[in-house]
Amino acid sequence: MTVVASTVSDSAHVELLQLQDAAREAGADSVTTVLPYMGYARQDDSFESGQPVSARAVARAISTGTDRVVTVNPHELSVNEYFDVPATAVDAAGLLAAPFGDLTEPLFLAPDPGARPLAETVRDSYGRGELDHCEKTRHTDTEVDVEPCDAPVSGRDVVLVDDIVATGTTMSEAVAHLGRDASRVYVACVHPVLARDAYTRLQRAGVEAIYATDTVEHPVSQVSAAPAIAEVL
């Protein structure tokens, strides 16, 4: 039996554990848990003494009710190592190329070096375009410094790519550096958390459109991650 749940909140985590328990009680010989979006996945390390590793705690809890786990673009692949059962990571980034029509001299841009492979995947799926990344220094959840990329952007369509957009701070800073030189600026992400006023912030920054998968339900979730998940089930 397969249980599918995006754990976007604490209550969603509890509901997942209940679903797993119900699957066992229904007599399932084996349970596969699919996590399109795994909450707490970004909290994959402790930064101060005594601080919990939330991703590990959540993974261990989920492991008690399943025989296998499938995640979709976890923030770090190492998160899958926290599960006590076999875990497979699915890459849905390539699907994000589908909504884009004819882009003008496209530049696929990552907000930091860590997101560059995602931007490359989207670029390769689109079929053409240049690839580059910015440099990012995060001070707090809402304070980020982004250094502009080296590639010229004048008159070009720029696609900013990341695995997750939460507060929109990083993307907004990147858009600010692009200024009015770029023809159009798009944002593409796998997980559109878009907490608080993130969506409005990006619109005000001048983003032409935001495209995301449906791992998190949002009006910008125009791409289904199902084909990527189905390949490993």
Results as ranks from 00 to 15, higher is better:
E105L: 06
E81I: 07
G155S: 05
A115C: 10
D91L: 02
H133D: 14
A230P: 00
R42D: 02
A57M: 13
E15P: 00
L233W: 07
P117N: 08
M38G: 03
A110P: 06
V85C: 08
G127E: 02
V34K: 05
F108M: 11
A22L: 12
G129R: 04
R138A: 06
A23Y: 02
I210E: 01
S78W: 07
D84M: 14
S11Y: 01
E231G: 08
A55T: 06
V85L: 09
T33H: 09
L233P: 03
G155D: 03
D44W: 02
T200C: 00
G94M: 06
L118D: 02
Q203I: 02
T64Y: 10
L178I: 12
C134S: 11
L35A: 10
T71L: 15
A12R: 13
R196L: 05
R116H: 08
D132H: 08
T71G: 06
A115G: 12
P74A: 11
V79P: 04
D157V: 05
P52I: 07
V232D: 09
Y211P: 00
N80C: 14
A87D: 02
T71K: 11
V158G: 04
V159Q: 05
T167S: 15
A41F: 01
P86L: 08
Q43K: 13
T121K: 14
H75V: 08
D112Q: 12
P148L: 02
Y40Q: 12
D141C: 00
P219M: 10
T88N: 00
T140A: 11
V144H: 11
A225Y: 14
V8L: 03
P117H: 08
S172R: 15
H191C: 04
R128A: 14
L160M: 06
S172L: 06
A55E: 03
L19G: 01
F47M: 09
P113T: 12
D21A: 15
V122K: 10
F100Y: 15
V159R: 07
D112Y: 08
E208A: 14
Y211G: 01
V70N: 04
Y126K: 13
L118S: 03
S221K: 06
T137E: 12
G39D: 11
D163C: 07
S125K: 13
R138P: 02
G206F: 01
Q51P: 04
T7S: 08
R156H: 04
F100V: 09
H139T: 13
I210A: 01
V146E: 03
V190Y: 04
I164R: 13
A209L: 00
P99M: 12
V14F: 10
S9K: 07
R56C: 05
V3S: 04
E143T: 15
P86I: 09
L95W: 01
N73R: 08
A228N: 11
T66P: 02
G127D: 05
D45I: 06
D150P: 00
H13M: 12
A205E: 02
S224K: 11
C189T: 14
L103I: 11
A89V: 01
L77Y: 06
D84S: 13
R156E: 00
